[in-house]
């Protein structure tokens, strides 16, 4: 479990995150949602350590990594996998080399062992046969899957996904969502997903926090969405006609 306690983060005097406290559970897909500019990315970057909060605590299973020295942080990072918005695959390496990279850097495995593990991860994300291709030769969805394979190569305890569905079609988005969801449950990973894709929210939102202008405005599960009374949350979630229709349909059934 990852726990954020009273996180405050500002840039040049402008407060972006206002005293955020939230829990992200192991074996669940935890979603951070909100409009553009609501502070989602800043929160995720703070959680993962790419930004340092002005104050607060970030506990990885009780370990406050903000108090860690650089060597401890390095150890903790080997327990973290991250899927970036643009996949962030190393473009000079093949798909297989990308997946093998964390194993090369942080294990003492032989080449054969690393290759076996990488091939297993690629198979897990249905990318068998793409191992010799360069990232530029892959479609957007395949790149995301390759990035997931790289993120799980070291058997991470924590998985961060920044806008995993950006730039890919709805059908592929479903595949990516299902993959993240399945992997989370299969390996009991604490997965945190930063998204504004309502399909993801409705599909895999097992624990959702909603940020509104840097404030934590709502939290719950996908089942709680239709009973929310938070105005900003409802405005965000039911912005599209289709979601309004779904809400009417659900309300009619109650």
């Amino acid at each position: 479990m990852i726990e954020a306690k009273n996180i405050i983060k500002s840039f040049e005097g402008k407060v972006i995150l206002h005293n955020i406290s939230a829990k992200f559970y192991a074996g669940k897909t935890n979603l951070i949602i909100g409009q553009s500019g609501s502070g989602k990315t800043v929160l995720m970057k703070s959680l993962v350590g790419l930004l340092r909060p002005d104050s607060g605590e970030i506990l990885y299973d009780g370990r406050d990594f903000l108090k860690y020295n650089s060597s401890d942080i390095k150890d903790l990072r080997t327990e973290i996998g991250m899927l970036f918005q643009g996949s962030a695959l190393f473009d000079s390496m093949t798909v297989l080399e990308n997946v093998m990279f964390p194993l090369l850097m942080f294990t003492k495995q032989s080449y054969a062992e690393r290759k076996k593990r990488a091939e297993f991860c690629l198979e897990r994300v249905n990318l068998k046969g793409a191992d010799k291709l360069l990232p530029a030769e892959l479609s957007g969805g395949m790149q995301k899957r390759a990035a997931i394979a790289r993120a799980i190569a070291l058997n991470p305890k924590y998985l961060f996904c920044d806008e995993p569905n950006s730039g890919i079609d709805p059908k592929t988005s479903l595949v990516i969502d299902k993959l993240i969801h399945d992997i989370t449950h299969e390996y009991n990973i604490t997965t945190i997903i930063n998204t504004h894709d309502m399909n993801s929210v409705m599909g895999i939102g097992e624990n959702i926090i909603f940020l509104n202008r840097g404030h934590l405005s709502w939290e719950g599960t996908k089942e709680d969405i239709f009973s929310s009374t938070d105005e900003a949350f409802n405005e965000f979630v039911f912005a599209s006609d289709i979601m309004k229709e779904v809400k009417d349909y659900v309300n009619r059934g109650r």
Partner: peptide, 16 residues
């Protein structure tokens, strides 16, 4: 290019 495509962030996250 590695910076703007988040490849450097990916390295940092891994602990490199």
């Amino acid at each position: 290019t590695m910076r703007v495509t988040e490849q450097i962030d990916a390295l940092e996250i891994m602990g490199v």
